[in-house]
């Protein structure tokens, strides 16, 4: 089936199998490998992207369902190689180790901060509750998101 999407401002058109997951479409067909896959049950959040303004786990959506959508992924956060405030805060607060969960964390935090620019710690924790990190733990990640609001 024909799928046309805009990802980080760029338009892509591809013929895809109807059963292909959006995450596989992004990674395998568009070579946007920043979004990761950590599970096959929708639990880990490593694949989180923003579709038409809504935070989604891209392993829980078919590529064909995204036809016509505007998608934002981690690759679109920095501008001309300059990290945005949230990305910089992740580095400053040691909020990543292996970096595998980081793209998903950043997208969840991005969606959170758009909806709620000054979240409390509780709200931050709720905002990333769909994202698992196995290396860093959550304290530094929460600190980084908090710092990005300041």
């Amino acid at each position: 089936m024909d799928v046309k999407v805009t990802v980080n401002g760029e338009t892509y058109e591809r013929d895809v199998e109807p059963r292909k997951l959006l995450i596989h479409f992004l990674r395998d067909d568009l070579d946007l490998t920043g979004s990761h896959i950590g599970c096959d049950t929708g639990n880990c959040g490593a694949c989180s992207v923003i579709v038409d303004g809504v935070l989604l786990k891209s392993c829980m959506m078919l590529a064909v369902q995204a036809d016509g959508a505007k998608i934002e992924t981690v690759e679109g956060l920095a501008r001309d190689g300059e990290l945005n405030g949230l990305q910089q805060a992740f580095s400053d607060h040691h909020a990543l180790q292996c970096g595998y969960c980081t793209p998903g964390m950043l997208m969840s935090a991005t969606a959170l901060l758009r909806a709620n620019p000054r979240p409390s710690e509780d709200e931050i924790r709720k905002g990333i509750q769909g994202n698992l990190c196995r290396c860093t733990g959550y304290v530094n990640i929460v600190d980084a998101i908090k710092a990005a609001t300041e």
């Binding site: 395998d28 490998t33 920043g34 990761h36 690759e75 920095a78 990305q87 580095s91 980081t102």
Partner: peptide, 20 residues
Amino acid sequence: PRKEDKRLVQGEGVFFDDIK
């Protein structure tokens, strides 16, 4: 600051599954 972070926070890491 970690040297690794700049590329990892931009989704520019290279994990095995990124290689085709």
